[in-house]
């Protein structure tokens, strides 16, 4: 499928995504699982994706790198810096594909206590059409044949 270049759409067209899940654990336990590399490597990624390595400099302005080994064996690394760290309730970090020159996206992860459980909320914003195209080229979206733009004005 061919997509015509649309340079005029890139600055404004972005997508946002909100995903929630209630988990039987405390915010403290979840924050620890997310911010301790040895634990993070054990759970990161959807089924089929494994994490070959992760580096985290857990302080505001500190960098992180997350490895993603795809089912086809390709590796894609997500990189960014921490923008806000509020244990045990919130993490905010920039997000982009390594070696791909696109504007960074931003991910906010919240751990909200709900009785004995915790609602984990992931808010992924600034997903841009140009980033989608570049990531596709980088092999991150091996199976995705189309890309997109939307408005979040």
């Amino acid at each position: 499928m061919s997509i015509e270049p649309q340079t005029n759409a890139q600055s404004e067209a972005t997508l946002t995504l909100l995903v929630r899940k209630t988990i039987k654990a405390t915010p403290e336990r979840l924050f620890e699982a997310w911010t301790t590399p040895a634990q993070f490597m054990q759970w990161w990624g959807p089924p089929g994706v494994t994490c070959p390595g992760v580096e985290m400099d857990l302080r505001v302005g500190g960098a992180y790198r997350i490895g993603n080994r795809m089912p086809d064996g390709n590796e894609a690394w997500i990189v960014g810096t921490f923008e806000r760290i509020t244990p045990p309730s919130e993490l905010v970090f920039s997000w982009r594909m390594e070696h791909v020159d696109t504007p960074p996206e931003r991910v906010t992860v919240r751990f909200d206590a709900r009785g004995s459980e915790t609602e984990v909320v992931v808010f992924h914003e600034r997903l841009a059409s140009e980033a989608a195209r570049a990531q596709h080229q980088a092999g991150w979206f091996g199976c995705l044949d189309g890309l997109v733009a939307f408005l979040a004005d």
């Binding site: 995903v19 054990q42 984990v120 992924h124």
Partner: peptide
């Protein structure tokens, strides 16, 4: 991305639970 994050949170839940 929705699938990616849903799947990732499922994995996190399995790990901590």
């Amino acid at each position: 991305y929705r699938d990616f994050w849903h799947g990732t949170l499922e994995s996190l839940a399995r790990f901590v639970e």
